[in-house]
Design a protein around this nucleic acid. Structure first.
Lengths: 227, 227, 227, 227
DNA sequence: ACATAATCGAGACGGTACGTCAGGTCTTTTT
DNA sequence: AAAAAGACCTGACGTACCGTCTCGATTATGT
């Protein structure tokens, strides 16, 4: 099964790829996951809903989860620079549906008030996790990544780590300004913010609230405050 | 004929249930998940490996994940008090493998040294999460629970929450002894311990180590130390 | 499969048999065949409808078709003298539904007018074959007998041959009276009457009518008339 | 979703049909019926023996009996003009069923000696019915047709009636030559030939012999001879 | 401008597994 | 001891999708 087979159909010509089909596949995949859930979303269903042949999906993606990951990256604006040649070139002209966020994660706000900034960001995360538009595919991908290390790695590399790095950067700025202990392990601090939040969301142990986000920030900052 | 009797085909008579079959199903399910992974574990495969008719599985469980959950509960000793009549035979004759933990999680150690106790427990958790015997089914159930709220709720209620409560109890003892801030939110503290650990394990962002466990404990205790 | 297995459950004690159950099974079997057809009649369905355990059926009959054959024999009054001990003894008391025909085929009418007698009998047969009460089980048993030689033999021996013998007897009386050729093969003559009728009914090539019955009689008698 | 498209999953594209699979299915079906009998022949068994997916059978036939009928028609040379490619071009758009008889059986011999000709044909029929290659599927289809009017109708229309018409035609030729009564009902005469023969075969009341065939012919011709 | 080659929509194919139904056996409890 | 009940293993059902494999019918260059 994993044997590549080296046939003629290997490595299709990406320059000839139909942009319309790709878009339609993304839209169909996200819509189906949102509507019927990940498990009952099928490649056949995506193809049929996208008005596309099944082979067009299998030509470009190895699995349902890979399609969904790309669709999700596209949705969140992290448009995958690996899977396609250079979509940004003609992304302007035909436009398609306009996406909210344009491209690279912008960097965390820095008003000087670290606690406030972190709370704002975590609250936004809470809101996003509660947004049904994001919830279903995020859960689907996370769950898939928990089981499939391959996919999990891509998910982490492309989505999670970039975000965590932003936190680290913001904390580093605060530390350099003398607002945090010089020896604080910022990476662990970030995980102390994100880990519990994610845990609650994944496990549904308690409702995700702004208050909880605030509490986390207060708790963590107390742990890495100077002295 | 479409509604034959409601009583007979709905809830089968649990007193007539074959203990041998249940055991065989648990063992087969866990073995298969460990060997080929959750996705490629099938109900048919479990039945065949357990030497059991498919219907015997469908008679007692609604889905593959439900089987696995019960198998896992049985494995960890939280033997489901709902699925069977009671400890009627108490496994005497045919025995099967004896399970290490009998019933309720034993309670966290309390040597008086809170940090040491927590570290010991978290390190043990790290070891368990690295044990391949537990890893596959735990990941499988966690992932399934992320997507299926029903299953997730059972998973949390039967496994996660009881454990978290043990932490809270241990922390409460420390707080009552004046070792922690009186106003500390112990639940959040526990989540600050468990959340990041789980996050690393699920996402595979960094290796899970004893050092990390220690770091978490130190960090959290610093946040809820008196004063 | 055909291996009898010689277990303890062989040859149950017929004297202890429940007459009530047997009746209920016959009624349920005939009703189901009439209602849903033979193929969709199941042993389980018969048992459930008769308010009887499945084993009670398997204890006394080897197969669905055997049940139906006995039920049919019971219906037509040829009450099987082999399958049960002596039902006629106490058949009086509880009675159940009264059957139209009492027992042995009474013998064909003999008014002296052979053609008229034969026509009357054949017309009656036509009517019976059109009676929905008889049609479904008769078709079912005939079809089963076509494929299963065992069952077919019992069907022929218990139902068909006795009837054919009556025809032969009537024809023999006519021949002895000089109304037929002395050398006529009466058995073949009977088959010339019954064969085409059965053929039409089984194959549904043409409607079964009294006129057709008459035509057959006329045709056949013409073939074996004296000279 | 319950009504997906009506067009696609209803009538599959017959031009894309795999001829190899169809042949393999026919062969497997006939072989299995001959080997294990009709009742123990399963769709799954046919598929597996033919090296074909089950769906490939269900795509083109509604039931086991339908497969067998087509296989049998193919075997006897009445190759079904509806099931495979061929005159699809001018069948019109969706083309109702305007089936006349396409591949008519060759016609009965006409040596001028009617009795001899009929005997030859009936003897050949006897031989065919005794040929184990034909016996099992013929019995299976006949029995199925006895119970399932739909299938029975197709069986009669495609196999039985064309044959009977040949007899009628031969008899008509003889009648026109003055060898039979002008007013003889030829259809009934044919049934008097075929009915008893079929009856013996189906019911297994007596062995099927050439002598019996001859007797039938003599008997019937005596009934419709001139005068 | 056009041939040429790849992608595309479509969907048939050999498969695997699904969840259900029933067959026939066995066991438990009731009569 | 037979009967009602029904759990059990088995095996087939008919369906849904999998991933592969043709098919014409568009594109979409690249000489």
């Amino acid at each position: 099964m994993p044997t590549p087979k080296a046939a003629s159909s290997r490595t299709p010509d990406a320059t000839r790829r139909s942009e319309r089909s790709r878009r339609a596949i993304y839209d169909a995949a996200l819509a189906l996951v949102a509507e019927v859930g990940y498990a009952r979303t099928t490649v056949e269903g995506i193809a049929s809903r996208a008005g596309v042949g099944k082979q067009t999906i299998y030509r470009w993606w190895p699995s349902k989860s890979a399609v969904l990951l790309d669709a999700y990256l596209d949705l969140t604006g992290q448009a995958g620079p690996e899977a396609q040649a250079g979509p940004e070139a003609q992304a302007g002209p035909e436009g398609g549906e306009e996406r909210d966020e344009p491209a690279e994660p912008a960097g965390l706000p820095d008003t000087g008030d670290l606690a406030a900034d972190l709370k704002a960001v975590l609250r936004a995360t809470v809101d996003e996790l509660d947004d049904p538009r994001f919830e279903a595919p995020t859960r689907a991908l996370t769950a898939e990544g928990v089981i499939d290390p391959e996919l999990g790695a891509r998910f982490v590399e492309r989505l999670l780590e970039p975000q965590l790095r932003l936190y680290v950067r913001r904390l580093a700025a605060a530390r350099d300004a003398g607002l945090l202990r010089p020896d604080a392990d910022l990476r662990v601090a970030v995980e102390l913010l994100v880990g519990p939040l994610t845990h609650r969301w994944l496990m549904r142990t308690r409702p995700l609230t702004h208050a909880y986000a605030d509490e986390l920030v207060d708790h963590v900052l107390r742990g890495i405050a100077p002295r």
